[in-house]
Nucleic acid binder design. Structure first.
Lengths: 149, 149
DNA sequence: CTAATACCCTACTAAACCGATAGAGTTAAG
DNA sequence: CTTAACTCTATCGGTTTAGTAGGGTATTAG
């Protein structure tokens, strides 16, 4: 299960991409109410995404948030890694945050690891090839999903 | 990430399948020490697997655990669902424990859900087609993994 | 200038979950 | 009838999750 926070992040990004009048920022409050996300919680999430270069913000009376990267370049995988941490089902399978399983005799011969290596592969195949842009119009989404599959 | 408990469960089942002298039970302590699993913790795990019909136990001095189902019939997916709960990345995608996302306007039009539906599909494709038997000899494991992929 | 309205940042918290540990109880073999 | 196995319930410290709270800072309309 992905966290609530990750769901909020993805929905907020889709909302931002949809309301894309170029160079016009969107209020946190607007996203919060249209997407039913607790306002202050969403602040934290967007701030986090800003620190990771996904969105940018403007302060002051006419402030708000905009996408910094193009929707095509923001993958689900990237967002999930920022918000929820590594995608791999075992620490010893993570490419971005590898950690040895300290009770494992040998990584190469670990049977459980072999199976989950496949799970990690197929999961990344979807998440790293699907972007926010694929959520904008139903059709383009379908196309990309078919390619990924 | 799957839980430590699930890793222990899978490793214990593989160990049980490997030490399969038919009709001879294996001590918890033996599995615990050979697999480096905390003994009392393993007790809970095996008990849980017993309640779900995966293993059976014998009490008394010559007691222990044995597989109740054939290794071919115990899938990774089944074990994970018992130990860690639903496999689906969103509650609204679980087949075994469906729950509506209460802040979602419409399930059919949810873009995030569409993407994770694919994730759920490919994940189940691996986990529900891979069994403990696939971990016994390297060769048979490879064969089945290739079929599943 | 200044008040209003945005984002920025840190700290806190209640509840749940995780990874165990403890210990009393039950069963069966020898 | 003792010993050594499984059975079951309770507890516990630490971490994570899903927020809430509140003050600080920047920008701009008037």
């Amino acid at each position: 299960m992905i966290s609530q926070k990750a769901r909020y992040a993805l929905r907020a990004l889709v909302a931002l991409a949809k309301s894309a009048e170029p160079d016009r920022a969107v209020f946190i409050s607007d996203i919060a109410s249209s997407e039913r996300i607790p306002r202050k919680f969403l602040e934290q999430i967007l701030l986090d995404l800003k620190h990771h270069g996904i969105v940018e913000s403007r302060r002051g009376k006419a402030g708000g948030y905009l996408l910094l990267k193009a929707p095509e370049e923001i993958t689900f995988g990237e967002v999930l890694r920022i918000v929820d941490g590594p995608i791999a089902p075992l620490p010893c399978l993570s490419k971005t945050a590898y950690r040895r399983c300290e009770d494992c005799r040998s990584e190469e011969s670990c049977e459980v690891r072999k199976v989950f290596a496949r799970v990690a592969d197929v999961t990344r195949n979807v998440l790293d090839r699907t972007s926010i842009a694929d959520c904008l119009s139903t059709d383009s989404g379908k196309v990309n999903l078919l390619i990924a599959g």
